[in-house]
């Protein structure tokens, strides 16, 4: 190490310029993959909504490849999907993300045979009152691969459910619409979301 790191400071309450351009819509008509709408709320330790949080999303494409030069898997890139999203919470603490279900990506593995991670979205949460960003993941309900995902398995069993989105019932008339999921981010208290030290 030749130079020393710059410390984190809170995003504060006045970050609206970062939300210019709607980055909550991560897909276009040409994007490959299963559409999913993820709705949720950010809640504090009193159960009150957090109206000044910003969530950033980073994910692989439908085949499980990240649009990044260090992902050298032999999978196709999708020119209509880059994997980054950003959304602010509204006055009720709510956010909505429009994306696709990513494919599985490999885990860190010293062995020659790959260990796969279950499909997931990587999230960073910033807010007034958070001095250092929080890192979490959204996993998908009903995925067999969740049971063997090395990151989920590192989480105490009783807290894993905080990382798995819940299906929202679709009305019969709505069956053609995108899959809808719910994922609340609880910053503190009972049902506190699992956050990762990366």
């Amino acid at each position: 190490m030749k130079t020393k790191l710059t410390s984190s400071q809170t995003v504060g309450p006045f970050f609206a310029p970062l939300l210019r351009g709607d980055l909550s819509q991560m897909v276009s008509a040409e994007t490959r993959g299963e559409r999913v709408v993820i709705e949720g709320r950010v809640l504090d330790g009193n159960g009150d909504p957090v109206p000044d949080a910003m969530i950033e999303i980073w994910q692989a494409n439908a085949e499980g490849r990240y649009d990044h030069p260090e992902d050298m898997q032999e999978k196709r890139l999708d020119p209509a999907f880059h994997g980054f999203g950003r959304v602010g919470t509204n006055a009720r603490g709510e956010f909505t993300i429009h994306t696709i279900v990513p494919g599985a990506v490999p885990a860190q593995s010293a062995q020659s045979q790959a260990i796969w991670q279950a499909p997931h979205l990587n999230l960073i949460v910033f807010a007034r009152g958070l001095l250092t960003r929080l890192v979490t993941r959204i996993y998908f309900p009903g995925e067999i691969a969740n049971d063997s995902d090395p990151v989920l398995c590192a989480v105490p069993a009783g807290r894993r459910a905080t990382l798995i989105a819940k299906d929202i019932e679709r009305l019969a008339a709505d069956k053609a619409a995108s899959r809808r999921l719910c994922f609340d981010i609880v910053l503190q208290g009972a049902n506190e979301t699992v956050f990762f030290d990366v």
């Binding site: 504090d44 330790g45 009193n46 009150d48 957090v50 980073w58 692989a60 990240y66 260090e70 992902d71 990506v105 490999p106 885990a107 860190q108 991670q117 997931h120 990587n122 807010a127 007034r128 009152g129 958070l130 929080l134 890192v135 993941r137 990151v151 590192a154 989480v155 807290r159 910053l187 503190q188 208290g189 506190e192 979301t193 699992v194 956050f195 990762f196 030290d197 990366v198």
Partner: peptide, 16 residues
């Protein structure tokens, strides 16, 4: 009311 009470769980870095 906003700081998590549980320590963050350390994970090894992956492609993600």
């Amino acid at each position: 009311a906003r700081a998590p009470r549980h320590p963050a769980i350390r994970i090894e870095h992956t492609l993600s």
